[in-house]
Simulated scan of single mutants.
Amino acid sequence: MSKKDYYEILGVAKGATEAEIKKAYRKKAIEFHPDKNPGDKQAEENFKQAAEAYEVLSDADKRAKYDQYGHAAFDGAGGFGGGHHMNMDDIFSQFGDIFGSAFGGGFGGFGGGGSQRRAKGSNLRIKVKLTLEEIANGVEKKVKVKRKVQASGVTYKTCPTCNGQGQVMRVTNTILGRMQTATTCPTCGGIGQSIDKKPNEADAHGMITEEDTVSIKIPAGVVDGMQLKVSGKGNDAPGNGIAGDLIVAIEEIEHEFLKREGENLHYDLYISYPEAVLGASKEIEAVNGKVRIKLEEGIQSGKILRLKGKGIPSLNSYGSGDLLVHVNVWTPKNLSKEQKKFFESNLEDDNFIPKPEKSEKSFFEKVKDMFS
């Protein structure tokens, strides 16, 4: 089933400003907030969808990718992309400031009184190199990642400074009267717990470093520089926190013969003068194996042959690009006396005098067609 458009979820136009997007999200978040809709599963789902939409549209980089590729820019097994698989703690942790004082000014949770905040572990970043064939077909990669996980035997106790709330209240006197503000607990860093016992090999936060094998399913059609997200495969957080994410940056390995331009591929085919005159059948390199094409008699250098659907699949599942074969007639530089004599005898021959037909496109027209 197709996913709902992010702009439609927030009720804003595609050209909406950052301020308009933030205002629209706050309105939706307050409308569907769990405190206002206790036990309403649909409201909870709408709340999560709004947070997912805001996470993407409030980030200039993610928004540009979404505008170009739609949901496919973030899709794929493992939780790539925007807010897929976000839970309530994720949402309140990242966007709690959006709600302001609408629900008591707490960190969020399901009560306005400021329930305990769950910390989130730091993200990890890796680079994955892909061949053009892997990009065209999609691929599953298994990578080894060193990530911090909670050591066995670690126990926690309630933070004595904040009594497990993750925040401390401060009262200050101003000209407007006494004002109460909540700040992150300096002792526990906002998680509401401190370490009680830990093994010797664990660090001050009760964490150890382990090597983990992560399976990453990469959809067909990704582009160089695109970042994918695998949820929960970053560093763990202390206590009952949420694991960070693994950010996967795509790097495309340059192909020996094929040049990529968006979803289209380009191939330079060099043929001999006799092949150009007489015509030929040639086998060329394509992204999914070799393809045989037929060259007509008298084919001209610069001719572009378009092989439909032999390019890179669209991330949006709108089909595939084309393979553009650029024909180049190779002119020999060293001729024997007999070969030179043959061409000299035909210099004035009518068949050898250039006579471009009106239907023959100029170089600039070919370039225009290529990019249209």
Rank of each mutant, 00 (worst) to 15 (best):
D5R: 14
I9M: 01
V12E: 04
V12R: 06
A13Y: 00
E18R: 13
K22Q: 11
A24D: 08
Y25H: 12
K28W: 01
K28M: 07
I30K: 10
D35V: 14
D35Y: 08
N37Q: 06
K48Y: 06
Q49H: 15
L57G: 07
D59R: 09
K65T: 01
D67E: 09
Q68C: 07
Y69L: 02
A72F: 04
A72E: 04
G79P: 02
M88S: 05
S93A: 14
D97I: 10
I98Q: 13
I98D: 15
F103C: 03
G104H: 00
G105W: 07
G111Q: 10
G111D: 11
G114I: 03
I126R: 01
T131K: 07
L132K: 12
E133S: 06
E133A: 13
V139S: 01
V143Q: 07
K146F: 02
A151P: 10
S152I: 09
Y156W: 15
G166T: 06
V171F: 02
V171M: 03
T172S: 10
N173V: 13
N173C: 02
G177R: 05
T181M: 03
T187F: 06
T187Q: 15
G190I: 05
D196Y: 04
E201L: 13
E201Q: 14
A202V: 05
A202I: 05
A204M: 11
H205W: 08
I208S: 05
T209W: 00
T209L: 02
I218V: 13
V222D: 00
Q227M: 09
L228T: 03
K233F: 05
D236P: 05
D236I: 03
G239R: 08
G244C: 09
L246V: 07
I247Y: 01
I247C: 00
V248N: 01
V248C: 01
F257V: 14
L258S: 03
R260S: 05
R260L: 05
R260N: 00
G262A: 15
L265G: 10
Y270H: 04
Y270W: 00
I271Y: 09
I271V: 15
Y273G: 01
A276Y: 03
A276N: 07
A280T: 11
K282W: 00
I284K: 07
G289W: 11
R292W: 02
K294Q: 11
E296S: 15
G298T: 02
G298A: 06
I299W: 02
S301C: 00
S301N: 01
K303D: 12
G319I: 05
G321Y: 02
L324V: 09
V327A: 07
W330D: 04
W330M: 10
K333H: 04
K340I: 14
N346I: 08
L347P: 00
E348P: 00
D349C: 13
N351I: 09
I353N: 07
P356G: 01
E357V: 12
E360G: 01
K366V: 08
K368H: 11
M370Y: 09
F371Q: 10
